[in-house]
Amino acid sequence: MEMKEFYYQDGLRVSVFNLDHKAIPYHFHGEVSDMMYCSRGQITIELPDADEVYTVHPGEVFQVPHPSKHRFVNGAPVGTLSRYVLLQIGAFDINFVPAAKEIAGQFAGRAMTHVADGAVYIEGRKNDIIKLADHFEQEKPEVLTPEEQADVVEALRCFASRGIEAGHPQAAGQR
């Protein structure tokens, strides 16, 4: 697993994750939601509190509302790299979950729900996300390859075009 965190300003955090077949550890956020865009391979999202497993393919998005426990897994065949672009809006925080092996066991062999038309809630930040996409189209962060740069621009444009300009309705305090 390779994480490239390259932008965190004005309440917007953007990262790229290249997943081999090691999963991101189970975690949750108290303040931010994870909005992910699958750019390569297939990403599986496990949500233990909801007892749900989802899968997204290239060009598709998924949002995990805070404070849901979750992890992202490479759902593509072994030996195939999967990549996703992560956007978070707000003050970043992360809390790792103990007893991850026990949690992972509940998802072994489970059927997944494919999310083809996932919604993302961008909290009124559409113009900021578009400006950020324009910026990264013109200027490549040092840590990114040209392919990753193109994926980031595509992901940000997707978040802006499909985004609902409100907070996630399932996020803490909005139930």
Results as ranks from 00 to 15, higher is better:
residue 102 E to Q: 14
residue 168 H to T: 12
residue 79 G to Q: 08
residue 74 N to H: 08
residue 143 V to F: 07
residue 126 K to L: 00
residue 88 Q to M: 15
residue 100 A to N: 10
residue 133 A to K: 03
residue 106 Q to T: 15
residue 113 T to I: 11
residue 85 V to I: 13
residue 130 I to M: 13
residue 160 A to L: 05
residue 121 Y to Q: 00
residue 59 G to F: 07
residue 104 A to L: 02
residue 155 A to I: 01
residue 60 E to T: 02
residue 100 A to I: 10
residue 144 L to M: 11
residue 114 H to V: 04
residue 83 R to P: 00
residue 94 I to T: 15
residue 103 I to C: 11
residue 110 R to M: 09
residue 147 E to L: 12
residue 107 F to H: 12
residue 164 I to G: 06
residue 74 N to V: 01
residue 165 E to S: 10
residue 137 E to T: 04
residue 87 L to G: 05
residue 167 G to P: 01
residue 119 A to Y: 04
residue 119 A to F: 00
residue 96 F to M: 10
residue 105 G to V: 01
residue 114 H to L: 09
residue 129 I to L: 10
residue 132 L to A: 06
residue 160 A to K: 01
residue 70 H to D: 03
residue 114 H to Y: 03
residue 74 N to C: 10
residue 92 F to N: 12
residue 154 E to H: 07
residue 104 A to I: 05
residue 68 S to C: 14
residue 84 Y to Q: 00
residue 166 A to P: 04
residue 105 G to S: 12
residue 107 F to G: 06
residue 79 G to A: 06
residue 139 E to A: 01
residue 99 A to H: 15
residue 68 S to A: 14
residue 155 A to E: 03
residue 143 V to P: 01
residue 67 P to R: 09
residue 62 F to V: 09
residue 101 K to S: 15
residue 65 P to G: 07
residue 114 H to T: 09
residue 83 R to I: 04
residue 72 F to W: 06
residue 152 V to S: 07
residue 104 A to E: 15
residue 66 H to Y: 15
residue 164 I to Q: 12
residue 83 R to N: 10
residue 88 Q to T: 11
residue 65 P to M: 12
residue 130 I to T: 11
residue 140 K to D: 05
residue 72 F to A: 15
